[in-house]
Design a protein around this nucleic acid. Structure first.
Lengths: 229, 229
DNA sequence: CACAGTTCTGGTCATCGTGACTCCATCTGC
DNA sequence: GCAGATGGAGTCACGATGACCAGAACTGTG
């Protein structure tokens, strides 16, 4: 479908991000079809007539990444439509980012030779298909900046988590280290960010950490800026 | 063109903003065709095969708003693609915002019954065509928040301007009043924001204000938050 | 010309958020 | 019991901010 060149075609491309072993990972699929057969690419697909953009993104998430919509934060990032970005014709692609907590290894979907998680650092020498390197950069930068002024970081964690785990999210996504005490003060004092629970996590060689859950708020005021803390 | 329902069509919609008499204004066109004939709508049009998204936006700016690309800041906001948002079929629309300094009154373009500037407050009781009320809200909110952490405010002003004029931009777009002294300190001390000139503006009943020009920077660090200053 | 009114610009001061740092609590493992 | 690790609280100096004040430099009026 959708390979004629008399019409503009609409697609979605997904940058699916999760944390694995304290590193930011992105899900890539290896293409089994031309163009760019054998190259690694972001999961994506054409939007079907009458289909919602978000719906198409969730469908791709299920088909190509075998991930359900549960516990995944999906958000539109930007739309790429430069003619020539896809050799099959004029394809306008709506880029999404999807964030989830420790997502499982993908099973191979249709039209896909392989699918796996990549740590972002591994990708330095990998040539992605189409303009997906740009799309990926755009989505990662969006995720990094949204951690600053929203409560999005919790979507990288299970329902209940410790402050250290939350700090680990920031450190992994931003690629920095943060002062534990200052981060603790900031996270616990910011209204609408965390809800304190009465239980503690199993100790890991130190004092057991109190468990928290994401509170209702979505915006962080004042923000938690990257330049320090 | 582009009214069949066997394909998805791609369009651009523009939220063109400027300041007129100290109020934020948006450019609307009155539709001369079905659907929504006679209703006010954002300028927009279908993207042509082989055309860049930004190119389509600039073309619409010229055709429907008779505005050249000079001195207009154009930026993608979000893409709307819910089926049913356009009765002609499945139309995916990439929303842009365009900001300019005291833009001229538009001349009527093609397929347009009328075109004029509307102060945002006037629009409370106006029913816009399609989902353009949502698109407009989204673009205005984007503009408001980008004033906080970028140097975008200067695009609402002529090349040379005073601090008071710059403060007026913030006050008009945010709908607040800011302390003149504090704003002056903040604007002049933030690196990369303003370049001081050796000339002064013609006095308006008080001490003449020094003229400034936008410096090279694009991001405001630290940001200028809406909650005060 | 004196004076009020206006606007621009620089200043003071209390407060608050922040980064660097210290200290104690509470666990594991030896 | 003790070393080592982690969690959580506190201290302190500094910089940014909001509220407010004062002088500079103009216009307009009596």
């Amino acid at each position: 479908m959708a390979t004629s060149s008399s019409e503009i075609h609409v697609a979605v491309d997904l940058t699916v991000l999760t944390l694995r072993d304290g590193a930011l990972n992105v899900l890539l699929i290896q293409r089994d079809d031309e163009p760019h057969r054998g190259a690694w690419a972001l999961p994506g697909g054409f939007v079907q007539l009458g289909e919602d953009l978000d719906g198409a993104a969730y469908r791709v998430l299920a088909d190509e990444a075998s991930l359900g919509s549960g516990a995944v934060h999906l958000e539109q990032v930007r739309t790429f439509g430069t003619p020539g970005r896809d050799p099959r014709g004029h394809v306008v692609s709506v880029a999404f980012m999807a964030l989830g907590a420790d997502l499982p290894d993908p099973r191979r979907g249709e039209d896909v030779a392989d699918a796996r998680w990549w740590a972002l650092e591994e990708l330095a020498e990998v040539k992605l298909a189409f303009d997906h390197a740009t799309v990926l950069d755009c989505a990662v930068e969006r995720a990094r900046s949204k951690l600053e002024y929203t409560t999005l970081a919790a979507t990288f964690l299970p329902e209940e988590f410790t402050i250290s785990q939350l700090r680990g999210v920031y450190e992994s996504v931003w690629g920095t280290t943060l002062d534990a005490g200052n981060f603790h003060r900031k996270a616990t004092r910011t209204e609408g960010f965390l809800e304190e629970l009465d239980r503690h996590a199993a100790p890991t060689g130190g004092r057991p950490a109190r468990l928290y859950r994401a509170a209702g708020g979505t915006s962080l005021m004042p923000p938690l800026l990257r330049s320090g803390d």
